[in-house]
Amino acid sequence: MMLSHYLAVSGILFTIGLFGVLTRRNIIGILMSIELMLNAANINFAAFNRFLYPGQHLGQVTVIFIITLAAAEVVVGLALVMAIYKNLKTVYVEKYNILKG
């Protein structure tokens, strides 16, 4: 397999995730699409590490950091979703308009 194969998969996955972020009405769906985009970036890191810098490991270390931060992000995000849901009783983002400004 060549590097461009993995880059193509990662690019398509990122584009699908971007489409989901732009079009889903459900906030949980938007969070899931963000996870897809993060995974596309992780595939790129691992592929560049494998093909351009064989014998090194710093790309994989970066992936570990990204996975950890994505876990933290999704935990806080889901806690916020549950807090908002308790107040507004809806999961659709166009109803989240109580911010005065």
Binding site: M2, L3, S4, L7, A8, G11, L52
Partner: peptide
């Protein structure tokens, strides 16, 4: 993304 992928084509 297609442009970038073509830039890196052929690397095995």
């Amino acid at each position: 993304f297609d442009k970038i992928t073509r830039y890196f084509s052929g690397i095995i």
